[in-house]
């Protein structure tokens, strides 16, 4: 190469290696970062009507627990996630039902109905929710979540509409 005042041989090599290195860095970096971040974006299109028990099995006036498991199969890997809650029948009327999730809105422990305290108690940080799921004391910032969509089928099963957040 004859001498050029545009760019020395050394600078040319520097720039070329820099550019190729940069491109390779991106080519490797994007898949790695994407691969690692993907779980945060994975949408589990999970929507379903889930039977949680016979309507008549739930006593009127007292919250009764239920739970169900959703299983996701991903290749050889099966992941089961458990959900639970409480059904409160206010009267004979199958419309008059309050269904609460048992997942504490503070840090996700499971609350229990306590008959003596007339409230839901969370064992983790001493929270108390009313029978309606409102926070009475303790650290949770929000009331218990409600399953608002539910129905009773011909056979008398209570079903809730489950939508994964």
């Amino acid at each position: 190469m004859t001498s050029s005042n545009r760019m020395s041989r050394r600078d040319f090599i520097k720039v070329t290696i820099g550019a190729i290195g940069g491109v390779m860095g991106v080519l490797l970096g994007v898949p790695v970062v994407g691969y690692l971040l993907q779980p945060a974006f994975r949408k589990q299109a999970a929507e379903a009507w889930i039977p949680i028990g016979k309507l008549e099995a739930f006593t009127i006036g007292i919250p009764s627990p239920f739970s169900f498991t959703r299983t996701k199969v991903n290749g050889w890997e099966r992941t089961a996630t458990s959900y639970g809650g409480f059904v409160l029948r206010r009267s004979e009327d199958p419309k008059e039902i309050l269904i609460l999730s048992s997942r504490c809105t503070h840090l996700s422990c499971r609350v229990n109905w306590n008959e003596a305290a007339q409230g839901y108690l969370c064992p983790c940080h001493d929270a108390k929710f009313s029978i309606e799921g409102e926070v009475l004391s303790g650290p949770p910032p929000e009331p218990l979540e409600r399953y608002n969509e539910f129905k009773v089928d011909e056979d008398g099963n209570l079903l809730i509409f489950f939508e994964e957040a």
Partner: peptide, 20 residues
């Protein structure tokens, strides 16, 4: 929400979390 999904590999602690 996003961070907690990333750590758990799903909505709740489960098999994905264990593997993670």
């Amino acid at each position: 929400e996003w961070l907690s999904r990333l750590a758990l590999g799903g909505p709740e602690v489960g098999g994905n979390t264990l593997l993670n």
